[in-house]
Write a protein that binds this DNA or RNA. Structure first.
Lengths: 192, 192
DNA sequence: GCTACCGGAATGAATGTTCATTCATTATTG
DNA sequence: CAATAATGAATGAACATTCATTCCGGTAGC
């Protein structure tokens, strides 16, 4: 069913755009229907409720994000190369779908997320935790709580991409590489 | 009018708590009334509408934030000392009212903010811009777009305090000082 | 080859609920 | 006993969701 897949995707795309821009509570189902160019009732053929829709979307986005940062992960490489890989994955993910990262950031922790969504997000955190933990063991990453280190990099990165999304700054390879350096300097141990 | 001030404040406190936790769109006026322990109608004696309420609250919070970072600002000191001052101001502000920072972060840029709210927020950005600009001129802060540098520090800091707010990590003077160091390393120029 | 019919997909007006806001009434204060 | 403050039930608007109806692609019968 080609048309079916396409319609479901149009709904998910519209929901992602609107949730990212206005938030879940600020988005109405008729808005999603209009943006997706389907009838309001059609949405309920694919998703039980608005709440189920946001959960499916959240899980899809986070799963794609995990894929972006973990695919081809250089397990044997040194910590700096691993950091570059993760950072590169985040950039690829954010560029590929400019709204998804913002959607994840603004909706992780929301009260309407179901256990499966929370667990999916936890998987992402676990992956990042493992990286940070290994870096701390090698004495190359600061001995701060892993949560804090992840928050620093993730916070800096998402705020950055919000600026890019808003058109306030232009994303270039040089800029991204400098941002990466800046984030790395925030978490690494310094010798001087 | 002791009672009047007190009631207006109770409403603002309740709104801040709920907006920070559930967002503007996820918070209903009756919820605010319940939390503030006033009748729903009472809110409209002090604020024309829910939208006016969120704007007044936003402006108050941002103004207090500006005060926190700019009061006693050491204009003559070196850039590192100025950074410590700003960071300390942010910490004081966040500790003084654990919800205000999160409210500002999640609501700056919202569609219902009026021009005055936007302008107030811009004042905060202008202050931070001036600091970053001066640091870049001295060659002590990285030659990145100011917006990006502010995003890095602000993003890292707010995400960090979200963790503290959620009880995931415990805020201690040592931790805060290490976070400050980490943020500073993210924006400063390195010689090694 | 054409028509009549079938069943799932799509629809949007209708439904019941919840919301922001109002206002007639009650409580408080000076 | 005014005058002012506070209230919460009442109101109309907007919401999420439902469902009777329409649409459409395929196909069985002629």
């Amino acid at each position: 069913m080609e048309a079916t897949v396409s319609k479901r995707d149009k709904i998910l795309d519209a929901a992602l755009l609107l949730f990212a821009e206005r938030g879940y509570d600020g988005t109405t189902v008729p808005m999603i229907a209009d943006t997706a160019e389907v009838g309001a009732g059609t949405i309920y053929r694919y998703f039980e409720s608005k709440e189920v829709l946001v959960n499916v979307l959240f899980q899809e986005c986070v799963t794609r994000f995990i894929g972006s940062v973990s695919r081809n992960y250089p397990h044997a490489a040194n910590i700096r190369a691993q950091f570059t890989h993760i950072f590169g994955g985040m950039v690829r993910f954010a560029k590929d779908d400019i709204h998804a990262l913002h959607f994840i950031e603004t909706h992780s922790g929301a009260r309407y997320l179901d256990p499966k969504s929370r667990e999916t997000f936890q998987q992402l955190m676990d992956f990042l935790h493992a990286f940070v933990h290994s870096g701390k063991e090698q004495g190359l990453i600061r001995p701060l709580p892993s949560d804090a280190l992840i928050a620093i990099v993730f916070g800096a990165f998402t705020k950055m991409f919000t600026l890019i999304r808003a058109g306030k700054i232009t994303e270039t390879p040089e800029l991204l590489s400098q941002i990466e350096e800046s984030c790395w300097d925030a978490v690494r141990v310094h010798s001087d």
